[in-house]
Design a protein around this nucleic acid. Structure first.
Length: 261
DNA sequence: ATGGTTGACTTTCAA
């Protein structure tokens, strides 16, 4: 089962680039972030015609997540538990069953800038809610893949120029400590373990500004975290870096893994 | 050098 995450930065602007990538990648399950669309405005028919089952959790203008799957999507849950007043659409879960049942948790973690301020407070509070949900998922003892745009640079080697991020919400010690607190529950960073001693990257995001792509001034902020039961099934991982050079690209590229499931 | 780009949606915010 090939499972991917792709922050597409606007479904309307990215139909062509996303469709090209879907047709080439051969994924079974894809979580999307920043669809920037209401559920009723999502171009469902276009993707259904290509054989995808679709669940969306959108909002007007910003944020929004979705799951596309060649397999049926079961037990869908929209929204991160822990704050009924949270209106931002950033989290979706579903179960897909191939040879084994796998729980998929797709997330778009808040950016948190500027720091300090209410947006950073929201980021930290959201991460605390994610920590609680992640523990529940581990307790299920299912194979779980918790993946998406985490908006966290885990280590200096995950940025081409770590110095320019030192005051940024994506790289502040408190942000990184919150991610580690989740990982230390027992999650495996699938991209990192592919090449544990890598000196740089692999990057998953290059800003539209400042010619970041041409300078390879990237960061690694899209992550694939595996429960132990999923890590035991891990067969392959990848970052589709070439997607950043496509026509009208997103600022993120897809990250993916293959499970023996 | 305090810039620069893109998307959604209006004139400005979010990233």
């Amino acid at each position: 089962m090939k499972i991917a995450s792709f922050n597409i930065n606007g479904i309307k602007a990215r139909i062509a680039a996303l469709t090209d990538w879907l047709n080439a990648a051969g994924a079974d399950v894809v979580v999307l972030q920043e669809i920037k669309s209401l559920d009723e405005a999502f171009p469902r028919a276009h993707f259904e015609d290509l054989g995808w089952n679709i669940e969306t959790h959108g909002q007007k203008g910003f944020n929004g997540v979705a799951i596309l799957s060649k397999l049926p999507l079961e037990d869908v849950m929209c929204g991160l538990p822990g704050d009924d007043g949270d209106e931002q659409a950033r989290y979706i879960e579903a179960t897909v069953t191939g040879e084994k049942a796998v729980r998929i948790a797709g997330l778009y973690l808040p950016n948190g800038n500027p720091v300090p301020g209410p947006k950073y407070d929201y980021k930290l509070a959201w991460m605390e809610r994610l920590r609680i949900r992640a523990a529940e998922l581990l307790a299920s003892e299912m194979p779980v893949v918790m993946l998406g745009d985490y908006n966290i640079i885990p280590e200096p080697r995950d940025a081409a120029n770590p110095g320019k991020w030192v005051d940024d919400a994506l790289f502040l010690p408190q942000s990184r400590a919150m991610l580690r607190a989740i990982q230390w529950q027992g999650w495996t960073d699938a991209i990192r373990i592919r090449d544990p001693w890598s000196a740089r990257g692999p990057f998953t995001f290059w800003d539209f500004q400042g010619g970041a792509w041409n300078k390879d001034d990237g960061i690694r902020i899209d992550h694939l975290l595996l429960s132990p039961q999923a890590a035991d099934l891990l067969a392959e991982t990848g970052v589709d870096r070439e997607a950043r050079a496509a026509e009208k690209p997103s600022d993120h590229v897809p990250v993916w893994l293959r499970l023996a499931a």
